[in-house]
Nucleic acid binder design. Structure first.
Lengths: 342, 342
DNA sequence: CATTAGCACTCGACGAACGAGAGTGCTAAC
DNA sequence: GTTAGCACTCTCGTTCGTCGAGTGCTAATG
């Protein structure tokens, strides 16, 4: 779809104004505020064309125009120039991420809070999958009660994963210790990803006698490490939804919050367009019908160079795309930087 | 404050009706629906008295009456008969808590979801403080990077508490191992509560050389174990707030959600009346001014007979006190029962 | 031929007016 | 002490008219 220079400028003006005011914008306003050098009448003609092409729409006759979903898409893809963070914004991000934020979970939650605070949208973040925890350091099996033990995996990066497991009757604490010992020895230094491979064979050899138990433990280990288990999701600034005039309607808010209460939905929201870079999903591009009036920008963050999880911002379709995207990018980079030390 | 039998019945009728309908209730309604055997006119007289005494109020002349906060308080304290769960409710609770719910965190979250679902209010729960984790089993210090180590505490009940700590420069892995060793030996079998006592002295003796480091570690241990750190709080059914007609106003919702986003506030909400049994806080009895129109019922749950955390329900002052309290009691008991196995 | 001024027209927002309905308080009768 | 009767009050929903913003069309303009 080709549109000429002036139409572009009109469209851009409409979007900018609507993003700022949340009110339908009329020809007069554009002529006044964005000096395109033409009269309202001309702009009206352009608007009529833009509407016919599907970039903008009219809530009702004799109202101004608002951008359509398609219009936003065009804007995001073709029109929008990259936003340069203000010095203050840069500083805010920098100083925020220089501060101590505690352990991994806290860092992630703080990032969410920060992003929601600075953008006024709602932040959604998925915690890192286990993939990125790095290499095994120790594996321990501590006897608990009669037939239960605690499986503790510690990785070189300092992540601790623990899970209570049930044992088949016939295991003594001594056995457990032996198994721990052997597993620690064998698994030390390999990555969790490599677990499935030949190492297992070695283990089997070593622990012929406890084959059964070992099988159980390995299964459990794998299960425990499965991504879905570990990709917890976090929310920041739910309230911000209520700040948007388009959501001053309880019914809409309820439906959106309803979705946000379900971890899976959020995960989907985050991962759907899971390319490497930044993803912008506008209105109906979201699978959830509750989010027809929302846009979601997401981006991947890394731990030690490997994609770890995603962080995103959820706002109305009338979103400050350039600024939000820029902030998100910078924050993701800063987050990855902080997590390098983990 | 003494009020006669009939006034009580009128008050009770007003409360019941208002709780059910959320509409001011008039004399005619009471006469019709709750057969007190007197005419509306008589009831009107009683209502005038009740109003003068502060139990009920009038939103405006020529509206019906609604219970005042004081009225609810009187109702909860003196009038309300205990609610017997329906068979279905009993079954729901039973079957819910018989199911596997995974680890501690999951159990707690599921409890919250369940309670919010069955009551239509918002559930708030604090996770168990460290107090209940029982006795030390092992204490480990694993070297991570140059000047960082991982402190891992495992208790006999299988809880794992871990925290990354920073070291003063001068510590070798060997030292760390020695310290771990000694600490494990000395601390094994004592409860976390006893930590502060004489044991520390022994430790100091044993580890003269590492006095400095030990001090740091002990401090850290204490800090890490401090209740506030560990008492994570969970929310269930935030949306339910939106279902209440009194919160169909965005501004109110925003203020309430604003508070609910702050962990500390929730903790306060839960712990303020931290007697053993059930606590009901009505409207202004909550310290937060945002909760003037809310009531909170909380109760303690236990792990192995020791108070562990609190679980509560947050709803409008117009709350179904008897039913909510009964459900909460039963759920807390069931929860404690499930947690016995932890 | 693109642009623009002018103008009639449309539609929602807002406020005033108004009647209906619910509920009260008071008085007087039972 | 209780109740019927009644005037009074206040809210809520409806209707109606006005206002203003904004459009689309037409004809004039450079």
């Amino acid at each position: 779809m080709k549109i000429d220079e002036r139409k572009q400028r009109v469209l851009e003006a409409i979007i900018k104004d609507y993003v700022a005011t949340a009110e339908p914008v009329g020809s007069r306003t554009i002529a006044r505020k964005y000096n395109l050098g033409v009269s309202p009448a001309t702009i009206r003609n352009e608007m009529a064309d833009l509407e016919e092409m599907g970039f903008i729409e009219q809530p009702h006759t004799s109202a101004g125009r608002i951008p359509s979903q398609f219009g936003y898409r065009y804007y995001v893809d073709c029109l929008m120039e990259t936003y340069t963070l203000s010095e203050m914004e840069e500083n805010l991000i920098r100083s925020r991420f220089l501060q101590k934020m505690g352990d991994l979970e806290q860092v992630i939650q703080e990032t969410g809070k920060f992003l929601s605070w600075i953008t006024n949208y709602t932040a959604i973040i998925s915690g890192p999958g286990p993939v990125v925890y790095g290499r095994f350091k120790t594996v321990e099996l501590l006897p608990l009660q009669e037939r239960a033990a605690l499986l503790i995996v510690i990785t070189e990066s300092g992540a601790v994963i623990h899970k209570k497991i049930e044992l088949p009757e016939s295991v003594t604490p001594i056995d457990l210790m032996r198994i721990s010992q052997v597993m620690s020895d064998k698994l030390q230094g390999i990555t969790l990803n490599e677990l499935r491979r030949t190492i297992l064979m070695e283990l089997y050899d070593e622990l012929q006698r406890e084959k059964n138990l070992l099988q159980i433990i390995i299964d459990l280990l794998e299960e425990t490490l499965k991504a879905s288990e570990w990709e917890k999701v976090y929310l920041g600034g739910i309230i911000n939804i209520l700040n948007q005039p388009e959501f001053h309607n309880i019914e809409k808010v309820r439906r959106i919050l309803g979705v946000l209460e379900k971890e899976n939905e959020i995960r989907e929201l985050l991962n759907e367009g899971s390319e490497e870079g930044i993803t912008v999903r506008i209105g109906g591009e979201n699978r959830q019908e509750e989010f027809q009036e929302c846009s979601v920008i997401t981006i991947t963050y890394e731990i030690k160079g490997e994609a770890a999880g995603r962080v995103g911002l959820l706002g109305p379709t009338r979103m400050e795309y350039p600024r939000t995207a820029a902030l998100l990018k910078h924050a993701a980079r800063a987050l990855s930087e902080v997590l390098r030390g983990f």
